[in-house]
């Protein structure tokens, strides 16, 4: 029997079931004769087993409804009237733009899917922040002192169940809000300020295609947007605050918006 010269390549072939059965015995003999290769083979085999084990659990998880519904009920209609089916929806999109120097935001696990709709939303919100929130003289149209009036006005114009979250615990006070033009319906902008003079803004609009969430920074050092979108509404938050603080503010705001929407 002439044993062909095996290489490390064959270890992968054997491991992945690509080695012809008739070579198998020969290959095993080669491994026995090469302790170094045998050890490598053992490690790769073990790694493959560990990989399978780590992900085995996912197969047993029940599939989220949003995935099964996608199949059973079909893809969402492309054209959707902006108010259709969103009576219980909270807010279309809420975006916080926070204005503190320093773009402390390094993309860590940045393999996030980014659809154009989200980018557009985040860019608009950052644009609104850059235009209005930083304009100290003319930040808002309606002040935050009469909160019910502000909420009522913005809700009526945007078609959203809009509330101005109380961010006092996070150190931010409501300055007020304004109405902005949007693609399908007007958007609302709420502006907050903390004692250090940092401003953040919440941008909300009655647009949204699919459920998604993420963080978006237009350019290094610029404000960051943390956003949420859902089928018929969304919510996102933006800022150049340190990531942790911005996330904290965003979470608090989002909770309040959800609570307000659910309560109706």
């Amino acid at each position: 029997m002439t044993q062909r010269e095996y290489t490390i390549r064959d270890i992968h072939l054997a491991l992945d079931g690509e080695m012809p059965a008739e070579e198998r015995a020969d290959f095993e003999a080669w491994l026995e004769a090469n302790p170094e290769m045998k050890a490598k083979n053992a490690r790769f085999t073990d790694d493959a087993r560990r990989l399978r084990e780590v992900f085995a659990g996912v197969l047993k998880e029940p599939a989220p409804e949003r995935l099964t519904e996608m199949v059973t009920e079909g893809p969402p209609r492309i054209a959707r009237s902006w108010l259709a089916g969103r009576q219980s929806a909270v807010a279309a999109a809420v975006i916080f733009a926070a204005g503190i120097a320093g773009g402390y935001f390094a993309g860590s696990s940045g393999l996030r899917m980014q659809a154009e709709a989200e980018n557009e939303l985040a860019e608009k919100a950052i644009g609104a922040y850059v235009t209005y929130a930083v304009d100290r003289g003319h930040t808002v149209e309606v002040g935050g002192t009469d909160k019910p009036y502000l909420e009522g006005w913005l809700s009526k114009r945007t078609g959203l169940k809009l509330v101005a979250p109380d961010l006092a615990n996070e150190g931010f006070e409501l300055l007020g809000g304004r109405l902005l033009p949007g693609a399908e319906s007007p958007a609302a902008l709420l502006v907050y300020k903390d004692q250090a003079g940092n401003q953040i803004s919440i941008y909300m609009v009655a647009e949204g295609e699919k459920k998604t969430r993420g963080t978006y920074t237009e350019k290094a050092g610029g404000p960051t947007a943390i956003y949420w979108l859902d089928k018929d509404y969304g919510c996102a938050i933006v800022g150049s605050l340190p990531q942790e603080r911005l996330t904290e503010v965003a979470k608090s705001a989002w909770k309040q918006l959800v609570a307000a929407g659910a309560a109706s």
Binding site: F105, G107, S108, S109, G110, L111, R112, Q114, R213, G214, T215, Y216, T217, E218, K219, A220, I226, W228, Q243, T247, A250
Partner: peptide, 9 residues
């Protein structure tokens, strides 16, 4: 400036 999911962040 890659995006990072809120959850992950």
């Amino acid at each position: 400036n890659a995006t990072v999911p809120v959850e992950a962040a």
